[in-house]
């Protein structure tokens, strides 16, 4: 019997358990994504629909009004700009500096290499809670509170990035490096014209990590920004929500949440495979 069904044409090879698993997966999947689905649909509802009971998932009349309010009444445009500058700077710096340090640890030979590498890896164990008060005091003392400098400075380097990229650089045959040296190619040129193009995949995966974790930062931007103009999206939406107690609508808040999610969601949908592989390989969220 089993042999016969296996030989049947593709279209007929449908077992009950296949349908059951598919149904179960779509049900669970929708349930898990439900908070996001609700936020997206709520952001298109008119004020009266938002607070009707019983609550419905889909809007009856679609409106963009909530986005207009979020954009104009609350400076979500400005928040988006701040988040972009903050995350962009952090990602660029982390990639650049991690590539350089990973090169030194993987390719170059120098006294103290192992000790320094363990020191860098060891820093991964230090929880942010231990250092954020001194960092806050330092940034404030330098007069960088409420500036882009203050938002980005403590996050320009990444021990995780150094570790990840070093692992990859080690897999590139050393012969490449020797050959380049014989041809008179210095380290700097070899790194950027040979090694980096060879490692595009790993560097890309790390850049995605760096971007997402910077974009989603909360505690640091919360304490280091004080003016509305310097808030990132995450902080902007937090303060926007606190106006709800004074009678504001949930619709624009949800529009703000969707604006905050969209860039990360776009990255996720475009680079799902790399992101998932990166997380699975490193066991870290970046």
């Amino acid at each position: 019997m089993a042999v016969q069904t296996r030989k049947a044409p593709r279209g007929f090879h449908i077992r009950f358990s296949d349908i059951a698993v598919n149904l179960l997966l779509i049900l669970i999947g929708v349930a898990i994504a439900m908070p996001i689905i609700i936020a997206i649909f709520t952001s298109f509802k008119t004020p009266s629909q938002v607070i009707t009971f019983p609550p419905s998932v889909l809007p009856k009349d679609w409106t963009l009004q909530n986005y207009v309010v979020a954009w104009n009444v609350n400076p979500f445009g400005r928040f988006l700009l701040n988040s972009t500058i903050q995350s962009g700077l952090i990602t660029l710096a982390q990639v650049l500096f991690s590539v350089m340090a990973a090169y030194a640890f993987a390719i170059l030979e120098f006294p103290g290499r192992n000790a320094l590498f363990y020191l860098v890896i060891g820093s991964l164990m230090v929880p942010f809670e231990l250092v954020f008060i001194p960092n806050y005091q330092l940034i404030s003392a330098l007069g960088w509170g409420d500036t882009y400098m203050g938002l980005t400075m403590p996050f320009l380097v990444s021990a995780f990035g150094v570790f990840l990229l070093r692992q990859f650089f080690l897999t590139v045959p050393k012969d490449f490096h020797d050959a380049a040296r014989i041809d008179g190619c210095g380290n700097w040129r070899y790194l950027w014209t040979v090694l980096v193009p060879l490692s595009k995949g790993s560097i890309g995966a790390f850049a995605i990590f760096a971007f997402l974790s910077a974009w989603n930062q909360y505690l640091w931007p919360l304490i280091i920004t004080s003016s509305v103009e310097m808030r990132t999206l995450q902080i902007g939406i937090r303060y926007f929500m606190s106006t709800l107690d004074r009678g504001a609508d949930w619709g624009p808040v949800m529009a703000g949440a969707v604006i905050a999610i969209l860039p990360a969601l776009a990255v996720f949908l475009i680079a799902q495979k790399q992101l998932v592989r990166g997380i699975a390989m490193s066991g870290l969220k970046g």
Binding site: I26, L212, I237, A264
Partner: peptide, 14 residues
């Protein structure tokens, strides 16, 4: 997978 993985990109604030 996309539906089940998606919370991974959502921030704590959102």
């Amino acid at each position: 997978r996309a539906l089940i993985f998606v919370p991974v990109i959502i921030s704590s604030a959102v």
